[in-house]
Amino acid sequence: MSASVTLPRMMEIGGGAIARTPDLVKNLNASRVLLITDRTMVQFGYADKVQQLLTHADIESRVYADTIPEPTASSVDEAVQIAKDGGFDCLIALGGGSAIDSAKAIAILAHFGGKMRDYKVPRIVNEQGLPIIAIPTTAGTGSEVTKFTVITDDATDEKMLCVGLGFSPTAAIVDYELTMSLPARITADTGIDALTHAIEAYVSLKASAFSDFNALEAMRLIAPNLRTVYHNGNDTNAREAMMRGATLAGIAFSNASVALVHGMSRPIGAFFHVPHGLSNAMLLPSITAFSIQEAPVRYAQCAVAMGLARETDSIDVANVRLVEELAAINQELNVPTLEEFGVTRDNFESVVDTMIEQALASGSPANNPRVPNPEEMKSLYRGLWS
């Protein structure tokens, strides 16, 4: 059986790789760059560093730094207009998943027009918009290597999943040095997001030998280093391992799709503004426990890759350790419950049916080894309160 594989055309990986930015722009025959980023990247000096590199290479650029966490359809409108009016022929996305997701939306809308809802699943967007060079500054989303973007519809609070080659960055620069200043909370949330990508890609019904290889290697890199970078962000070896693991996890799920955790996570973020990695973390232990019965060998292999079990251990032992470890990670990394995050039970119950509808409409739950019906999904959501 063959597997379809999507990757950026060019990738630069390793400490100091950001210095190669002008070379990638020139390789794309581009000359006017719109840098899509956020205020934090400006404050840290990363945006200025990229712009200086471009200036020294005689490449024109402008910085747009008003992207927001969990981007919405309206939040990209200004940058779309700037890209149209300014004659820009390349976008550089600098930041976490939100900046890169924003750039993916901007690249398509600036070139083809329309509204973001026009491009959500089930439509597959293979049309090529403006080329994107993605430079992640977190070790988590993997958006630099994926053909997905998630944009919230302002009118309905739906987190719209948008899929296709048109959303895949043309190039990616994966420089772990850009993650050294990340605070512990963001380190934890993005790290668990990457671990979720790897696990879900491996157990996905769309998995292949190619995605399996990347998912297992991602787990081997992330599992022993996640706690380390949370407690000691200055550990360069752990930071580098996390960055490589996050990118490999991104490659894995871009080519195998995510599953039930992500399907149920997106509505939590849309309705209650819970950061994406954090809502994944809230769901990962219970959904793993729910799903194991339909893919016990696959989940046991995850446990082995994470160093939780030996190849000689029984499948049951490995799976018990996996669920216990996912719960232990949440406890050590101070992942809050929904209630601790500030969500009231009444507000939650008022939208839970809509959350289920949106989760199912995304298509991600259908990739899960065990596909829940709406009542089972409601039980899993309500389990967040116990």
Score class of each variant (00 low, 15 high):
Leu248Trp: 11
Leu221Glu: 14
Phe272Gln: 01
Tyr230Ala: 02
Glu158Trp: 08
Gly166His: 11
Asp154Arg: 09
Tyr176Gln: 15
Leu216Asn: 06
Met160Thr: 05
Gly245Asn: 12
Glu240Pro: 08
Ser257Thr: 13
Leu161Val: 15
Val229Met: 02
Leu248Phe: 13
Thr156Ile: 12
His197Glu: 07
Ala215Leu: 06
Ala171Met: 12
Arg266His: 13
Asn214Met: 09
Leu278Glu: 14
Leu165Ser: 11
Ala201Val: 01
Ser257Met: 14
Thr196Lys: 03
Ala207Gly: 13
Val174Gly: 09
His262Val: 07
Arg185Cys: 00
Thr236Ser: 15
Ile192Thr: 06
Thr228Asp: 13
Met242Cys: 05
Ile151Asp: 01
Ser286Ile: 15
Ile199Asp: 02
Leu260Met: 07
Ala281Cys: 06
Asp154Trp: 08
Pro267Ser: 03
Val258Cys: 15
Val229Gln: 01
Ser211Arg: 01
Val261Met: 00
Gly269Arg: 08
Ile287Pro: 00
Leu182Asp: 07
Leu284Thr: 07
Asp157Phe: 07
Ile222Gln: 07
Glu158Asn: 15
Asn237Cys: 11
Thr179Met: 05
Pro267Ile: 01
His262Trp: 14
Ser208Gln: 08
Asp212Arg: 12
Thr190Gly: 10
Ile173Leu: 12
His273Cys: 05
Ala171Arg: 13
Gly277Pro: 05
Leu165His: 11
Asp193Ile: 03
Asp189Val: 00
Asn255Arg: 08
Phe253Gln: 08
Gly250Pro: 08
Ala249Val: 01
Ala259Gln: 09
Cys162Thr: 13
Ala155Lys: 15
Ala215Ile: 05
Asp235Gln: 03
Ala256Ser: 13
Ile151Ala: 02
Thr288Cys: 03
Asn255Ala: 06
Ala155Asn: 15
Ser204Ala: 05
Val174Arg: 05
Pro183Tyr: 04
Arg244Gln: 13
Ile268Thr: 10
Ser286Val: 14
Gly166Phe: 10
Val229Leu: 02
Ala201Ile: 01
Ala198His: 05
Ala184Gly: 02
Ala246Ser: 12
Pro169Phe: 14
Glu217His: 14
Ala249Trp: 02
Val229Thr: 01
Ala201Phe: 00
Met243Gly: 06
Ala209Trp: 06
Phe253Trp: 10
Glu217Phe: 08
Ala281Met: 04
Gly269Phe: 06
Phe213Ala: 15
Gly164Ala: 03
Ala259His: 08
Leu248Gly: 04
Thr156Lys: 13
Pro285Thr: 09
Leu283Tyr: 00
Val258Ala: 15
Gly277Asp: 06
Ala246Val: 00
Thr228Lys: 14
Pro285Ser: 07
Glu177Gln: 14
Tyr176Val: 07
His273Lys: 10
Gly250Ala: 06
His231Arg: 14
Ala194His: 04
Ser204His: 02
Asn214Gln: 11
Leu221Phe: 11
Leu283Glu: 00
Ser254Gly: 15
Pro267Lys: 04
Ala172Pro: 09
Phe271Ala: 03
Thr228His: 09
Thr152Glu: 11
Ile251Asp: 05
Asn280His: 04
Met160Ile: 06
Leu284Met: 08
Leu205Phe: 00
Pro285Gln: 08
His231Ala: 13
Ala215Tyr: 05
Thr228Ser: 12
Leu221Val: 08
Asp153His: 15
Ser208Cys: 11
Arg185Leu: 03
Leu182Ser: 09
Asn232Gln: 10
Met219Trp: 04
His262Gln: 06
Thr190Ser: 15
Ala209Leu: 08
Leu178Asp: 06
Leu260Arg: 01
Ser257Lys: 11
